[in-house]
């Protein structure tokens, strides 16, 4: 779920940078120093999630769990995800400094949106909680894949079919993200429900 450096054109890079800056500053503004420790820890946990490989079919995919972070942190997920991506760039050179804006928005934008929209479902019945969790994981991944495809397509119309391949290859990942987010959410509601009421 990273676009490497050197692929996108200036307008897309600039657009991503602007959107990510806006999102991050909103997130930071809503974050006071009492909660900053929790957000850093969750950001680190989000980074660790990307090291977890879950088997699917003959291969395996690594988790992203942006939707989950959105549910927990709301707007705070924006800076948390940007920081996690920044760390991935420093440690593994995945993504990069110039595309950080685009990559940040691709992952954090849908995560925050799904988190804010679906949060209320978590107060409902067990069935609603499960649906909310699944949708948060599935939709945030789905929207991220669409944004990624758009970023490629807007850079160069010749990328159309590559973008299609990217989108299609993310379909199974969306299902896994949905399932895992659903299970984590129901687990947290049972074990430590305070985590999910963090941003209220």
């Amino acid at each position: 779920m990273h676009i490497s450096e050197g692929i996108l054109t200036a307008p897309v890079l600039a657009g991503g940078a602007v959107l990510t800056t806006i999102g991050t500053s909103i997130g930071l503004k809503k974050l006071d120093y009492d909660r900053i420790m929790t957000v850093s820890l969750l950001s680190a946990t989000f980074f660790v999630a990307s090291l977890i490989h879950v088997p699917i079919g003959p291969g395996s995919v690594h988790l992203l769990l942006g939707g989950l972070l959105g549910l927990i942190l709301g707007w705070g997920a924006f800076p948390a995800i940007v920081v996690a991506l920044c760390l991935q760039t420093i440690f593994f050179q995945y993504g990069g400094l110039v595309v950080l804006g685009v990559n940040g928005f691709i992952i954090a934008g849908p995560a925050v949106l799904c988190g804010l929209l679906l949060k209320s479902l978590l107060n409902g019945t067990r069935r609603k909680q499960m649906i909310g969790g699944f949708l948060a994981g599935f939709c945030s991944m789905f929207l991220s894949a669409i944004l990624m495809a758009c970023a490629l397509f807007f850079s160069d119309a010749g990328f159309l079919r590559v973008a299609g391949i990217v989108l299609a290859s993310h379909l199974p990942v969306m299902l896994i993200e949905g399932l895992i987010t659903m299970f984590v959410v129901t687990f947290l509601i049972r074990v430590q429900p305070e985590i999910l009421s963090l941003n209220t």
């Binding site: 929790t38 850093s40 299970f183 687990f187 947290l188």
Partner: peptide, 25 residues
């Protein structure tokens, strides 16, 4: 079952890091 196990492992990690955050804070 695998997916549920992974979720619970990760969920437990979240709980632990949440508690750690509180202590560090």
């Amino acid at each position: 079952h695998t997916y549920r196990t992974f979720s619970h492992l990760f969920g437990m990690t979240l709980v632990k890091s949440w508690k750690r955050a509180e202590r560090v804070h």
